[in-house]
């Protein structure tokens, strides 16, 4: 990866709030046209990173280049060319959707047609509705619309789907994909594993302000898990030491009645597991075989689930 072509280039970025090391030495690049995800639990430092990159928070140390510029030195130039959706921000409550979009259009040196932006996020029926009367999902769509008004090359989305129902999340994913299709680079944060896996070309898994894994979701899972996960429910076997001795099994995780076996050889593990079940007199029910996910990666790397 050439440094010069990177849309975002971050080296050893640090930001402390008193004793809290919100961002503690991050280094990564974001390449043109990709969806780059930052995945981490609450308080991992995602928002802080985004805020430094978009030029609304000063860093303590490290170098940051966004579109080839330092957002601290040339904030206006950077802001003019990026789109931003912030995690907690709301909007003027008594303006309508189209009024807010038009207002934002006037902030930038160039902008798209307001009506076009509104229909891209599927809010055309709500164009005349005041913000305070929008649903959570609609507010989130508006936030993304506002990140699109200037047709920026790089769009930051900080937890765009948090708090939405599954259907609304899927709809938003479609919007993100269409942004990518139009050639934009997208930097998004999430603490949904499935979202990172589905949307992102590359993911930085971050915890306590540090990157603990970085790569494509597929690579991350492959690198950390050659094996498949085999899950079943059988209280009688939970915590049984013999499980780790079954053929093919590399690791065992118990979570109450639910047991997860990681295995390199699914058929043989199943066979020996069945045998063990007969021996104990407790037949295995509800068995699920699945590929490991980023959740498993996070669990393996930190010993914690991403959402406790």
């Amino acid at each position: 990866m050439s440094l010069n072509n990177s849309i975002v280039n971050v080296q050893d970025l640090r930001k402390y709030y008193g004793k809290v090391r919100a961002v503690d030495g991050l280094s990564f690049t974001v390449e043109k046209g990709e969806i780059f995800g930052m995945l981490g639990p609450n308080g991992a430092g995602k928002t802080t990173t985004v805020e430094v990159l978009v030029g609304i928070r000063k860093r303590d140390s490290g170098t940051v280049f966004v579109l080839g510029m330092d957002p601290e030195r040339q904030p206006m130039a950077v802001k003019d060319r990026i789109g931003v959706q912030l995690q907690t921000a709301s909007m003027y409550p008594r303006l309508t959707v189209s009024e807010v979009v038009r207002l934002f259009c006037s902030f930038y040196s160039r902008h798209l047609e307001p009506a076009e932006i509104i229909s891209q996020v599927g809010l055309q029926n709500k164009a005349g509705t005041q913000i305070k009367n929008l649903s959570g999902g609609q507010v989130q769509r508006l936030a993304i619309a506002l990140a699109m008004v200037n047709d920026g090359d790089l769009v930051f989305l900080d937890e765009p789907t948090t708090g939405l129902d599954p259907q609304a999340r899927r709809n938003l994913w479609d919007v993100v994909f269409s942004l990518k299709k139009s050639g934009k680079t997208i930097f998004l944060t999430t603490h949904y594993m499935d979202e990172a896996e589905r949307l992102c070309d590359r993911v930085a898994v971050i915890d306590h302000g540090k990157i603990i894994a970085l790569g494509s979701p597929h690579d991350l899972i492959r690198d950390h898990f050659l094996e498949r996960a085999l899950e079943f429910i059988q209280p009688a076997l939970a915590g049984d030491e013999r499980l780790s001795g079954l053929s093919g099994v590399t690791r065992v995780r118990g979570n109450g009645e639910r047991v997860t076996l990681y295995t390199t050889d699914v058929p043989r593990t199943i066979a020996s597991l069945m045998e063990l079940g007969e021996v104990v007199g407790a037949p295995i029910k509800d068995m699920v075989i699945r590929q490991a996910t980023l959740e498993d990666v996070f669990l393996k790397l930190t010993g914690r689930r991403i959402r406790e």
Binding site: V54, G55, I56, M76, K79, D80, V84, L86, T88, A89, S90, M91, Y92, P93, F104, F107, Y108, S109, L146
Partner: peptide, 14 residues
């Protein structure tokens, strides 16, 4: 409080 100032701060609006 509503972080509207913050959001506006992320635009080139002086």
């Amino acid at each position: 409080e509503q972080k509207i100032l913050k959001r506006l701060g992320a635009t080139p609006l002086p």
